[in-house]
Amino acid sequence: MESTVESTVAIVTFRDIFQDEAGKKSKFADEFRTLAAQVLLDKQDMAKLGWKDGQKVMVKNDVGSVVVAARTSGDDPHPGLVWMTASPWSNQLLAEDYCAGEKPWAGITATLSPTEESVTQISEILQRMRA
């Protein structure tokens, strides 16, 4: 990952028991959003970008975009690779044919850039679907 403000990364999604528990109770609660709307970066990448835990970042690709909080993964080294939980937030970036059986999948390509915007709300995600 280059030491620039915007970074191109590959996103790999994962399951998180805390998010799953929160989602079973309510997908509309702050607890679920806080746990789901995150992107986890390698510690060195965070340092290079000059980001601190909680930095709001716009994650964007050809499919869509979301604003989430950047956090350190605690699982380094994985330069240029970031983790997001499988959730309505990561689904905004997921290509329709990601699982079409044509070719091996190597993560979601996207760019990260710092933003002053608020973390995307679940209501906004729903509005985008219905737009």
Binding site: V63, N91, A95, M129
Partner: peptide, 16 residues
């Protein structure tokens, strides 16, 4: 199931 929470944006849009 909750397809709109689980599916890629394009499929969720098609369903709505």
């Amino acid at each position: 199931s909750d397809p709109l929470a689980e599916l890629p944006l394009a499929t969720a849009r098609a369903l709505t």
